[in-house]
Design a protein around this nucleic acid. Structure first.
Lengths: 185, 185
DNA sequence: ATTTATAAACTAATTTAATTAGTTTGTCAA
DNA sequence: TTGACAAACTAATTAAATTAGTTTATAAAT
């Protein structure tokens, strides 16, 4: 046999399909195999079943998000950098509604996921330094910032906001209020 | 046949099992039926399959959360009321790790879920009034507050916080910073 | 040019879960 | 005592994931 199918192509296609479906758990191996024009058991040559596919998609999603955030922040400081990061985070979620949910889990010590997470963390800590935040102070704020980003976008993706009220404005206001809050120590 | 099994008992048991498992989607009808000492198809006399069970659990969870929040806020104003609501929200999530995730979806117009949501919303708007927030301003802040609560507790439940740093402190700090932020209009 | 090893496909069979159809049975009310 | 209904049951179907074992195409080694 030997077509030019690789793990990367399998994961890429799975990400596309999951994003079309809006939820990675809606994607069945049957659908993925069909899209790749192979039979289901052949997928096992590339990923360790559905659990292995999810793991691979998590790394795929995290790498992408991490890159996007760093691109958004590079060359900026303090408020401008945080606002740019927030906007990019939300844009990533909108563009990846199916796999977004995979980025929230912290990695096991020593894992690829942990490595990517630490990388983004150190970038954010650099920015928070420009606010005068250091040590545990800064770490608490990173947790807070992540919480509000994840909370907003996950509610948005889940259809959690029922009111007829502009979402962009709500998001902008949330980020502004929080940044304002961390400045009044 | 006719044992004294009711829909309420089915849902109650399902909630218990889901919370033990930590994720409602890990709960299989087989396990629920076994815990109730009936066969799987008999569950269909009480709920419309697994989708119907999820719907019922969502209403169960939302009602409980809504009651808890109102109890926490009643008789308090401004910052004190918001802090109490935040603590209760997080406590609810810790006590209900399996079904917590069901509370984030807004209800269809006319649904029970929408009714409960509107009820909690009006309560929160009352509190925000004591901050001088009204109209769309207040609605944006309700969205923000919900976002940070949901973001923090869902990251916490999903094992999203990897660092060895006190979670209670992170949460307290987040709430304080946000409340501080909405006061500097 | 032929053989051989390997990766990647395949078919077939199993397991688990949810669902539907159709049947039985116990309780309560007429 | 009969008749109706709710709630249980068994049996069969469907969907999905997985595992085992087999085939085949390519590419390297003789």
């Amino acid at each position: 046999m030997a077509r030019d199918l690789t793990k990367e192509k399998v994961v890429q296609k799975a990400a596309e399909l999951a994003n079309e479906l809006g939820d990675v758990h809606q994607l069945k191996l049957k659908d993925l195999a069909a899209a790749l024009d192979i039979k289901v058991p052949s997928l096992y040559n590339h990923v360790k079943g559905s659990a292995g596919l999810i793991d691979a998609l998590r790394i795929h999603a995290l790498s992408e998000l991490s890159g996007i955030l760093q691109d958004a922040m590079v060359g900026k400081i303090s408020e401008e950098a945080l606002v740019a990061a927030a906007q990019s985070y939300r844009t990533f979620a909108h563009a990846n509604p199916g796999i977004y949910q995979l980025v929230i889990q912290a990695g096991e010590p020593g894992s690829e996921v942990e490595r990517i997470g630490k990388n983004s963390l150190s970038f954010l800590l650099l920015i928070l330094g420009s606010f005068g935040l250091q040590g545990d102070e800064a770490l608490h704020v990173v947790r807070g910032f992540r919480s509000l980003l994840h909370g907003f976008v996950s509610l948005e993706l889940a259809g959690g906001f029922g009111l007829d009220l502009d979402l962009d404005q709500s998001f902008e206001r949330l980020i502004k209020d929080y940044i304002s809050g961390i400045q009044n120590l």
